[in-house]
Write a protein that binds this DNA or RNA. Sequence first.
DNA 1: ATTATATTTTCTAATTTATAAAAATAAGGA
DNA 2: TCCTTATTTTTATAAATTAGAAAATATAAT
Lengths: 99, 99
Amino acid sequence: MKAPRLAPLKGRDSHVAAFKALAHRGRLDTFFFLVRARREVPAGEIGDALGVPAPTLSHHLDVLRRAGLVTSRRQERYVYYSVRPEMALDLVRLLTACC
Amino acid sequence: MKAPRLAPLKGRDSHVAAFKALAHRGRLDTFFFLVRARREVPAGEIGDALGVPAPTLSHHLDVLRRAGLVTSRRQERYVYYSVRPEMALDLVRLLTACC
DNA sequence: ATTATATTTTCTAATTTATAAAAATAAGGA
DNA sequence: TCCTTATTTTTATAAATTAGAAAATATAAT
């Protein structure tokens, strides 16, 4: 049988992880840099734009990726990051339940 | 002059604080308990419903209140908490910018 | 005033998170 | 191959967060 429609008024662990990923100045900036870019951006370009050391940025991108908020793709020497809107939409669905 | 319309594609500190408040299993449960209740609920009743010790709950409610997600009102012996939808709406506006 | 109930504050231990330096990995060019 | 660049992972430590007992505070009833 199909999975039952989940109650929209209940936060789940994936939501906690996504909120946690966005609950950091540097990561929120990183996420919205990608949102504004509206394209794939290599890690180094993000680091240059935001002035974040590469290891720190890599860690933050990893948190965003594990939370499902961004996706990455290696091509040649670069790793391109871009927004994955599904999870952001999921948060919107959760939050609009209370308004 | 009037304040200029803020760019919707930029996260601000208030957003970070709100995401941080929701980035915790217990606090997300607390917030959505109040969302579902659709009424003012005294702290003790929340603690009973969620099985959280009073001091722990008080801390979490404080975080949610400072983030602007809930409001509280003392009446007689009780402190009643309820959802403040404005901040949740603010997060929705921020997140819908990327979809 | 004393007692009871409800909530918050204080305090400390345990856990988690952030960050950077250094090492490791991946890919391409000389 | 060796070298360079780009990125990630590991390691280490500092900083922040969390949980909950104990103590303090607020309010009302007796």
